[in-house]
Simulated scan of single mutants.
Amino acid sequence: MTGCCHNEHCAPAKTTGAPQWRRALWIALTINLAMFSIEIAAGVAADSASLQADALDFIGDSANCAISLMVSGLALTWRARAAFAKGATLMAFSLWVIAITVWHALFHAVPEAEVMGAIGLMAIAANGFVALLLYRFRTGDSNMRSVWICSRNDVIGNAAVLLAAAGVFGAGAGWPDIIVASIMALLGLSGGAEIMRHAARDQRTDSMPAVARAE
């Protein structure tokens, strides 16, 4: 890859191991692990499918950041492989969220709206900070982009949890929680597929002859 950075796919290879990138990942990893612990406990206590779904996103993001730290500075091919694996993992987490959502729908659980709202506000603040932290890396290689996509999706998911809490409070029923959890699962599936497509493109780019990449 040395000396071939003349297009959008190989240029990020120069900066992917930069101290700024690694520092941002460590901060994001710490925040995501802390929020997973808080949100999974609250989701179980409040019997909320959307909170549990959001908690799974936090642990998925933690793994995402950890893997990104491991491959930071490696060749584009390895970063693309890591990103592909992370996309597949995100889709697997989304399928697990679907399973949780179905379970809640069958048993008609009514979650505690107050807990959902309080934890949702905390989560959107945490994810909003992480998303802003990672915004500058959103146009990097597939590995960088995978972290940004997950953070972006989480902010959307947190906003949806707040809407679900308002819906549960107003309707006195669990269906808003079920709907939001389902939307979050679909968002995860879409994000995972996007990450995998970008990773596959990076792998194809890195396998091209150096002359072809420079054109």
Score class of each variant (00 low, 15 high):
L56G: 11
L56K: 08
L56S: 12
L56F: 12
L56Y: 13
D57T: 13
D57E: 11
D57C: 14
F58W: 13
F58K: 09
I59N: 03
I59K: 00
I59D: 06
I59G: 06
G60Y: 04
G60L: 05
G60N: 08
D61S: 14
D61N: 14
S62A: 14
S62I: 07
A63G: 13
A63T: 14
A63H: 08
N64G: 02
C65E: 04
C65L: 02
C65P: 00
C65Y: 06
C65M: 06
A66T: 12
I67S: 10
I67P: 08
S68W: 08
S68T: 11
S68G: 01
S68M: 07
L69H: 07
L69T: 09
L69I: 10
L69D: 04
L69G: 03
L69S: 05
L69A: 07
L69C: 07
M70W: 13
M70Y: 15
M70N: 12
M70K: 15
M70G: 15
M70T: 10
V71H: 09
V71F: 13
V71M: 10
V71W: 10
S72Y: 12
S72N: 11
G73R: 01
G73K: 08
G73N: 11
G73Q: 08
G73Y: 09
L74Y: 09
A75G: 15
A75Q: 15
A75P: 15
A75L: 14
L76A: 06
L76Q: 12
L76F: 09
L76Y: 10
T77W: 05
T77R: 15
W78Q: 12
W78L: 11
W78V: 13
R79I: 05
R79G: 11
R79K: 07
R79V: 00
A80E: 04
A80W: 00
A80M: 00
R81K: 14
R81E: 09
R81T: 05
R81M: 02
A82Y: 01
A82V: 00
A82E: 01
A82C: 00
A82T: 04
A83L: 03
A83Q: 00
F84N: 04
F84P: 02
A85N: 02
A85G: 09
A85I: 02
G87A: 02
G87S: 02
G87P: 00
G87W: 02
